[in-house]
Simulated scan of single mutants.
Amino acid sequence: MADIQWNLLTVLLSIAIVPLFERIVIPAVVLGVFFSWLVPIAVPILQFFCDSFAFLAQLPTTITFGKPPLLFIVFWLIIQFLLEYSKHARWLLGILICSYVIAAALIRLPFTAEVVYFDIGQGDCTLIREPFNQSVTLVDTGGKVNFQHEQWRERRVKTTGETIVANYLLSKGISHVDNLFLTHQDTDHVGNFASLSKVIDVHRILVPQGMEQLASFRKRLRVSNNTLQQVQGISTKVTSRIGMFHLLHPFASGTGKNEDSIALSFSLQRIKFIISGDLDKQGEVEVAQRNPKLRADVLKTGHHGSKTATASVYVSQLQPQLAIISAGVNNRYGHPNAATLATLAKQHIPFLNTANAGMIKLMPQEKGFIIQTFNENRKVK
Score class of each variant (00 low, 15 high):
Val139Cys: 05
Asn146Ile: 08
Ile95Val: 15
Asp119Ser: 14
Gly94His: 02
Phe132Lys: 13
Arg129Ile: 09
Ala103Ile: 00
Ile95Asp: 03
Phe118Thr: 05
Tyr100Asp: 04
Thr137Arg: 00
Asp124Gln: 12
Thr141Gly: 03
Asp140Cys: 14
Arg153Phe: 14
Thr126Glu: 00
Leu96Val: 05
Ile107Ser: 04
Ala113Tyr: 02
Pro131Leu: 08
Cys98Ile: 15
Leu106Lys: 01
Thr141Trp: 00
Ile95Thr: 08
Val139Phe: 07
Glu114Met: 01
Asn146Glu: 14
Gly121Tyr: 02
Pro131Glu: 09
Cys125Val: 07
Cys98Ser: 15
Arg129Lys: 13
Asn133Ile: 02
Gly142Trp: 06
Ile102Leu: 13
Trp152Asn: 02
Cys98Glu: 12
Gln134Pro: 03
Asp140Lys: 03
Ala105Ser: 07
Asn133Lys: 01
Ile97Ala: 11
Val116Ala: 05
Thr141His: 07
Tyr117Gly: 04
Lys144Tyr: 06
Lys144Leu: 10
Arg108Ile: 00
Glu150Val: 10
Leu109Phe: 13
Leu109Tyr: 11
Gln151Glu: 09
Gly94Cys: 11
Gly121Ala: 03
Ala104Thr: 14
Glu154Ser: 11
Arg108His: 03
Phe118Gln: 05
Glu154Ile: 09
Tyr100Arg: 00
Phe147Asn: 13
Glu150His: 15
Phe132Cys: 12
Asp119His: 13
Ile120Leu: 07
Lys144Val: 12
Ala105Thr: 11
Ile102Val: 14
Val145Gln: 13
Val115Asp: 15
Thr112Trp: 15
Asp119Lys: 11
Arg129Asp: 11
Arg108Val: 00
Glu150Met: 15
Val145Ile: 15
Ile95Ser: 09
Phe147Ala: 10
Phe147Leu: 13
Cys125Phe: 08
Gln122Thr: 09
Ile95His: 02
Phe132Tyr: 15
Leu106Trp: 13
Thr112Leu: 13
Val139Lys: 02
Ala103Met: 07
Leu96Thr: 06
Ala103His: 03
Trp152His: 10
Ser99Asn: 01
Thr126Leu: 05
Asn133Gly: 04
Gly94Val: 06
Leu138Phe: 06
Arg108Lys: 08
Phe147Gly: 08
Tyr100Cys: 11
Ser135Arg: 02
Lys144Arg: 14
Thr137Met: 00
Glu114Gly: 02
Phe118Trp: 12
Leu109Asp: 02
Glu114Arg: 01
Gly142Thr: 09
Asn133Tyr: 02
Ile97Gly: 00
Gln122Pro: 02
Trp152Ile: 09
Ile102Gln: 00
Val116Asp: 11
Glu130Gly: 04
Asn146Gly: 07
Lys144Ile: 10
Ala104Glu: 09
Leu138Gly: 00
Gln151Phe: 11
Ile97Val: 12
Thr112Pro: 00
Glu114Leu: 02
Ser99Lys: 01
Val136Ile: 07
Gln134Glu: 10
Phe118Met: 08
Phe111Thr: 08
Thr112Ser: 13
Gln148Lys: 14
Glu154His: 06
Phe132Gln: 12
Leu127Val: 04
Arg153Trp: 12
Arg129Gly: 10
Gly94Met: 07
His149Cys: 14
Ala113Cys: 02
Val115Phe: 08
Ala104Leu: 12
